[in-house]
Design a protein around this nucleic acid. Structure first.
Lengths: 197, 197
DNA sequence: TAGATTTCTTATCATACATCAATACCAGGC
DNA sequence: GCCTGGTATTGATGTATGATAAGAAATCTA
């Protein structure tokens, strides 16, 4: 048995025998991206889901004045894609970029659909992924509506302590919806508060 | 043939014969909610999806200090639910409340799952709903990250002109992530700008 | 219709966060 | 090793939005 993260992800989430599993893995393309390279560019139609096997990627958009806004980080073991583009066959509004050297499996949407027809476990699997996605996005909306910059930063450090150490602060700020300068000050204030305790 | 919004929603989104369709509709419970009544309360597990046949509902949360934050509006023809709670069988963090007198179909999750097994068109249908949900939430996250209060308000007036006229401004403000006072100012500024043109 | 309640507006003041600018820091390429 | 460009910090200042309060308007309800 191979040692891919994707393998253990599938075995723990879909009911498959080993033969079927290996057949599957063999069917997926794996692709390497150097730090900075793009998995998806704005304007392209996103035809796959990416499973990050190793490395780290980000999903982000750029507004009229050239400012970047990060919607999602995707470290190893995570899926990333622009589902809107993939499902509705529309040019993507976003970019997906490798933040570190990254190895990713490309899961073709058509292929997944076919699997779903023959294997009900796959329907359930896909459902789980989609609901997980919705859960994360809903929490994110709620946070952005209700929490201050400091609260959002604290939540981030608790939820994604690993990512925090792997990306420049400028990107954490972008994810949180504040400027890097503000984030620097938030961190300073927190450090002070902790010192005083 | 009946005249339900749900009927036309289904016929235009799922490939079903009329017999099957009527059988379906007969299986769904319909429920009336007076303005102010709750379709779902925080702490409950959400066991159905609600299809709003007439009226208007909102999905919202309340934070520690008692402040409400609206995640989604659901007018007639829309689905609303806490999918996280439904799918993962967890107590909901949110409320769903009727803003107007509302008639809603209650779609039982188990029932939908069963339909999916026998009818592949239903898998596709469910997929479409989920992807639509993800699309909306992603746009919302991106907006909250990148746009000013004024920009968000303008986008709202364009995307949901009907809802704008049906809910108190206090709720629009809550949806946009600002205070009612700020919204009032934004509106005043916009009115001034338009007058000067 | 009148009274009560909520909603909306406006004003003042407070604050969180942005912007701009300067400096120090660090990392990758030559 | 030394540039070079990106990153982080800090300070001064500006601005958008929040908090509070009060009155006007609209809506509900009896």
């Amino acid at each position: 048995m191979n040692n891919f993260k994707l393998t253990s992800f599938l075995t723990s989430n879909v009911d498959l025998d080993e033969k079927m599993l290996n057949e599957l893995i063999a069917n997926f393309k794996i692709k390497h991206f150097r730090k900075g390279e793009y998995l998806l560019q704005q304007g392209e139609v996103c035809t796959n889901y990416f499973f990050i096997e190793t490395g780290l990627a980000r999903l982000f958009g750029i507004n009229r004045v050239g400012k970047e806004h990060i919607i999602q980080f995707a470290p190893e073991g995570w899926f990333v894609s622009d589902r809107e583009s993939t499902f509705f066959k529309q040019p993507s509004s976003y970019f997906i970029q490798a933040i570190e050297d990254t190895k990713a499996f490309l899961l073709d949407e058509q292929f997944i659909l076919k699997l779903s027809e023959s294997n009900p476990a796959f329907v359930e699997f896909n459902n789980k992924l989609l609901h997980n996605h919705i859960r994360n996005m809903t929490k994110r909306v709620y946070q952005l509506l209700s929490a201050t910059a400091e609260e959002r930063y604290l939540a981030f450090t608790k939820t994604y302590p690993d990512i925090l150490l792997r990306v420049p602060q400028i990107m954490v700020a972008s994810y949180l919806g504040i400027t890097p300068e503000s984030l620097s000050r938030v961190r300073k204030d927190l450090a002070l508060k902790n010192f005083k305790k």
